[in-house]
């Protein structure tokens, strides 16, 4: 199992109100699975995504990622886990505007401590995987939305992570670009990558092999297509 979640809860204090964003979530994701997590806004899927992506720690419960317990790690240890084991793809791309596509893709390897030469080589390879070899030296604002998201996917791949986490990856794209992006995810999954996708669009979720439905901080349905 790549992801093993047991009884995860997350409680936020919002002023006087206590919000139970996650109320006991248990979930297993095997290596090579393509899972979509679906739910309306406020269902807790973003909170779950933050915890799965090691951006946040659960209030209680255990989380094992790629065989390593990560629920109680320090900020810096989580940063290392994010760097080594998780590739992020965000809705708003989150590329650094001053850097070229190649440099953006190479960025996670900077923090992994790889030398400059191997960084650029691997980054070029990752860009080739998403079909952007001819756009290496373009800045993000010189690329279309679909191309930007493909750069972001290349960036998520470059450190060879255990899972790729995609948070509404098609949310800012037109249908055609969105379909292309989903095609890439499907290809990656077919090559054996573990992909976890967060979305509220049923069409997008339908691309995944497994759909987990959430509501009010709980998993309500877990179905395989």
């Amino acid at each position: 199992m790549t992801i093993v979640l047991r009884d995860i809860t997350k409680v936020y204090q919002m002023g006087d109100n206590i919000v139970n964003a996650l109320a006991g979530v248990s979930l297993d994701v095997a290596a090579g699975e393509f899972t979509a997590i679906m739910g309306p806004s406020g269902s807790g899927k973003s909170t779950l995504m933050n915890i799965l992506g090691c951006l946040d720690r659960p209030t209680s419960g255990s989380y094992s990622l790629d065989g390593e317990g990560v629920a109680k790690l320090s900020d810096d240890a989580l940063a290392v886990i994010r760097n080594r084991k998780i590739g992020f793809v965000f809705q708003s791309f989150n590329l650094l505007p001053r850097m070229s596509a190649l440099q953006n893709v190479a960025l996670p390897m900077v923090y992994a401590g790889a030398d400059r030469h191997s960084r650029l080589e691997k980054a070029a390879h990752a860009l080739a995987l998403v079909g952007l070899s001819d756009r290496q030296h373009h800045k993000p604002n010189e690329l279309s939305g679909g191309q930007r998201q493909r750069v972001a996917i290349a960036r998520s791949l470059v450190n060879d992570p255990a899972i790729i986490m995609a948070d509404e990856p098609t949310g800012n794209l037109d249908t055609k670009s969105g379909n292309e992006i989903m095609e890439i995810f499907r290809d990656l999954n077919n090559q054996g990558r573990t992909v976890v996708l967060i979305t509220h669009e049923p069409d997008i979720a339908a691309c995944a092999k497994r759909v987990v439905h959430m509501r009010d901080g709980k998993i309500t349905r877990d179905e395989r297509n």
Binding site: V80, N83, A112, R155
Partner: peptide, 11 residues
């Protein structure tokens, strides 16, 4: 972004 990609406090 840098932190999400694995930058530590010291970085």
């Amino acid at each position: 972004i840098r932190k999400a990609l694995g930058a530590t406090f010291n970085n």
